[in-house]
C-alpha cells in the first residue's frame, strides 16, 4: 500500500497547481456571469439560465475540492460510494422543499388577496440615505 500512495503522490505533483488554476478560473467565470446577470431583467429566461449555469459551475467547484483537495478521488471506490450515494438524498430534499415553498407562495397569492396586495406594493425609494449612511462608516 505504501508504494502505491507514494507513486500517486509523485504523479500528482502538478495536480495541486492545476486544481488551483481550475478553481480560480471557475470562480472568475461565476463572477463574470454574476456581473452579466445584473443587467438582466428579474425573472427573464436569460437570468434564470444564467443562474442555472452558475449552479453548475458551483457543483463543478465542489467536485474539484472534494475529489482532489479532499483526496476522495484516490480513495477506494467503495468509500467514494458510501459518501456520494447518501448525498443523492439531497435531490429529493431540494425538490420537495423548494417545490412546497413555491406552492405555499402560489396558495397565498391565490387565496390571500390582502397578502398579495401588500407584497406587491412598491415602497417609496429612500435607498440613497442607506447607502450614504453605510459609506460613512
Amino acid at each position: 500500500m505504501e508504494q502505491t500512495t507514494q507513486a500517486e503522490h509523485s504523479s500528482n505533483k502538478h495536480e495541486i497547481r492545476n486544481v488551483t488554476i481550475v478553481l480560480t478560473v471557475l470562480t472568475l467565470l461565476e463572477l463574470t456571469l454574476g456581473f452579466m446577470m445584473m443587467r438582466m431583467a428579474d425573472g427573464s429566461t436569460a437570468k434564470i439560465s444564467t443562474k442555472i449555469a452558475i449552479i453548475i459551475l458551483m457543483l463543478a467547484k465542489a467536485y474539484y475540492i472534494v475529489a482532489y483537495f479532499m483526496h476522495l478521488k484516490h480513495e477506494i471506490k467503495n468509500l467514494i460510494m458510501t459518501i456520494v450515494v447518501p448525498l443523492t438524498l439531497f435531490i429529493w430534499f431540494i425538490i420537495a422543499f423548494l417545490g412546497d415553498g413555491e406552492s405555499y407562495k402560489n396558495l397565498r397569492n391565490t387565496y390571500d388577496a390582502h397578502k398579495k396586495a401588500v407584497s406587491t406594493q412598491k415602497v417609496e425609494i429612500k435607498k440613497e440615505t442607506h447607502s450614504e449612511e453605510g459609506a460613512k462608516h
Partner: peptide, 18 residues
C-alpha cells in the same frame, strides 16, 4: 424512510401533488 417525511403533513397545506 428518508423520502417520506411529508406524509405527516398532508393536512398542513402541503402541495397536493407533492
Amino acid at each position: 424512510s428518508l423520502l417520506v417525511w411529508a406524509h405527516h403533513m398532508f393536512v398542513t397545506g402541503l402541495n397536493p401533488f407533492l
